[in-house]
Computed example of a mutant assay.
Amino acid sequence: MNKLIFFSLFCWTIGLVSCNNNKQEAAVQQPAATQSDSSAAEQPIKTILFFGNSLTAGYGLESSEAFPALIQERIDSLNMPYKVINAGNSGETSAGGNSRVDWVLRQPVDVFVLELGGNDGLRGIPVAETRKNLQSIIDKVKAKYPEAKIVLAGMQIPPNMGAKYATDFRGLYPELARKNNIMLIPFLLEGVGGEVKLNQRDGIHPTAEGHRILADNVWEVLREVV
């Protein structure tokens, strides 16, 4: 009888110790999970700055319809820690952008998307001048934020100014991308330029539907750097 009581007490003690050990292990493991969740929540927000002309600004549309806003929607849907700033200025040339960029760079920038030059081409500004201005903008970004990633949006123009001018203009974007080792969107208006139904009455500025295609063109490259 005493042996039976002793055996029962022994089993009960073992069970109690095992239960306590399990509770201790759970208590040790729980803070680790909480700490991981906290780290994810405290991940710093980075900035993507779109610097361009009326295409970036979303001329003729609500700001929410312009491609930078659509990029923000995509980023949010993926829970990525980035905020988008639209620094587009309608009518801006590369020279105007070169004068304005110092003011824009007062805020921290992690990704800089440069979309300028289109107005230069439409006005027949010498390609060498456009190249010089775009290079200066790139240099200023690199000097202020050496770790920032730069994406250059390529542009093309109709041969109104002559075939040679159009060819030289188209070539300056891949040339700058190679020289500066930065990412290139081959042609921002791919699938939109020249498509009547995707452009507003002026035939230059994309509709809301056109901007959705622009956002796809941009994301194809931007996703590699965010």
Rank of each mutant, 00 (worst) to 15 (best):
I5Y: 08
F6D: 10
F6S: 09
F7W: 10
S8K: 10
L9Q: 08
W12S: 13
W12N: 03
T13S: 13
I14N: 04
L16I: 06
L16A: 14
V17H: 06
V17Q: 11
V17W: 08
C19R: 10
C19G: 06
N21D: 05
N22R: 12
N22Q: 14
Q24M: 12
E25F: 07
E25C: 01
E25P: 00
A27E: 15
V28Q: 13
V28R: 15
Q29D: 11
Q29R: 13
Q30P: 00
P31C: 02
P31E: 12
A32L: 15
A33I: 15
S39N: 11
A40L: 14
A40P: 00
A40F: 12
A41K: 13
T47E: 12
T47A: 11
I48C: 12
L49W: 02
F50Y: 12
G52H: 08
N53L: 02
N53G: 11
N53W: 00
N53T: 13
S54T: 10
L55W: 00
T56C: 02
G58R: 08
G58H: 07
L61S: 05
S63M: 06
S63D: 13
S64T: 15
S64D: 08
A66K: 03
F67I: 03
P68C: 05
L70R: 12
Q72R: 01
Q72F: 02
E73H: 07
R74Q: 14
N79T: 10
N79V: 03
P81G: 08
P81W: 05
Y82D: 12
K83R: 15
V84M: 01
V84L: 03
I85V: 15
N86H: 07
N86A: 06
G88E: 07
N89H: 10
S94M: 09
G97I: 10
G97F: 10
N98Y: 05
S99F: 03
W103C: 02
V104L: 11
R106N: 15
Q107D: 14
P108F: 01
V109P: 06
F112R: 01
V113M: 05
E115P: 09
G118S: 05
G118K: 11
I125S: 08
V127C: 02
R131M: 07
K132D: 05
Q135M: 01
Q135F: 00
S136N: 13
I138Q: 09
D139N: 15
V141R: 09
K142A: 07
A143S: 14
K144Q: 15
K144C: 03
Y145R: 10
Y145Q: 11
P146N: 07
E147V: 06
V151R: 07
V151D: 11
M155W: 01
M155L: 15
M155I: 13
Q156H: 04
I157Q: 07
P158Q: 13
P159T: 04
P159V: 07
P159K: 01
M161A: 12
A163D: 14
K164N: 12
A166G: 06
D168G: 02
G171A: 14
G171F: 01
L172Y: 01
E175H: 05
L176H: 04
R178F: 00
R178D: 02
I182T: 01
I185A: 02
L189F: 12
G193Y: 08
G194L: 01
V196A: 14
R201C: 00
D202F: 04
G203Q: 03
H205W: 04
H205N: 14
H205E: 07
P206Q: 05
T207C: 02
H211T: 07
I213E: 05
A215M: 05
A215N: 06
N217K: 02
V218M: 14
L222E: 10
L222N: 07
